[in-house]
Nucleic acid binder design. Sequence first.
DNA 1: GTCTATAGCAAGATAGAC
DNA 2: GTCTATCTTGCTATAGAC
Lengths: 202, 202
Amino acid sequence: MRLFRERGYAQTTMRAIAQEAGVAVGNAYYYFGSKDHLIQEFYAHAQVEHRAAAQPVLDREDAFGARLAGVLHAGIDVLTPSHEFAATFFKTAAEPTSPLSPFSAESSGPREAAIKLFGEVLTGSTAKVDAELRPQLPELLWLAYMGVILYWVHDRSPGQTKTRQLIDGVVPLIDRLVALSRLRVLRPVTRQVFDLIRTLRH
Amino acid sequence: MRLFRERGYAQTTMRAIAQEAGVAVGNAYYYFGSKDHLIQEFYAHAQVEHRAAAQPVLDREDAFGARLAGVLHAGIDVLTPSHEFAATFFKTAAEPTSPLSPFSAESSGPREAAIKLFGEVLTGSTAKVDAELRPQLPELLWLAYMGVILYWVHDRSPGQTKTRQLIDGVVPLIDRLVALSRLRVLRPVTRQVFDLIRTLRH
DNA sequence: GTCTATAGCAAGATAGAC
DNA sequence: GTCTATCTTGCTATAGAC
């Protein structure tokens, strides 16, 4: 991970990694199926750090919006030192056939943990949420987080300021939509959304 | 393209491509900067085919929803023969630094053409659209199309049936939201969305 | 400016000995 | 489990033909 951050993904050779780890190249491949597979370490690591960074926010805030914003910002905080490297490795993660896709079975560990984190955003908050929406919401929030990361990876503004603006802009929006979900007028729309999600899930 | 479709992206070597084309490897590199750059041909080709496949729909339908659904389905129709290959090359397209990203400057040609196509979906329709939303809508529809493709690439259901369901489910939703955009109650929400888009654009 | 042929490098991945 | 040697392939370099 240190080499990746320092030189970037492509510039870090398996030979260099093996040498740095004091083992032979073949041995590295004994433990990691491919260079790409090393990235899964990154996921697991990032998830643990994210959890830790989010804790103070979860302890402090009780408004849904503040909690969500805090957790999203914490996620980006943790990733920021690896921004350049993340941009280059993102291609591997995006490949659907890859076990590195955040949607893949191999990534289910970190994914479940992340969804659980967004569950805590909800349960610890004072928000009143539509009963039908509530069980779906943690996964939807995680999906939104994936969207934020997708934007962040492409974000070339200095310090990724735009991503911060995206979070600050999109959180009140989600907050409002969640509140509106209980409104009678919007019932058909939310129903339609749920039906669609249900259809696609299996 | 034929070799890619038959063997997949990784399994097709530059040596094989050059041989099949009856040229030397060096000559292939004279015309294409890298193996990845061959993919841009795919984009351009797909865009032209998409345009042609969408024409009958645009001639026939005048309801916004029907036009949008038709154009989205036409896009997937055109891509379907390359589904397997697309899944493996998608990684290159997803890398933000890559000139192959659909958001990159190098891809602006096909992108503009695609956005224009969604402009026609709108202008030829009978839909009444909020004045503030109208100029933004074609690009937003294109973005939604990118989302559909993202889903399609990951879609492992036989014949990518799920993607078809996604289109059929999401189109009435978009249709309804576009109609609702003129509603007074939702004005603050749409304003919020526009402000966010404006902020992020520069 | 367009093309061929060939040689060779770098780096991801693998085979097979120990 | 670990190593060394080797293979494969994207890509580059060179020298030369037309």
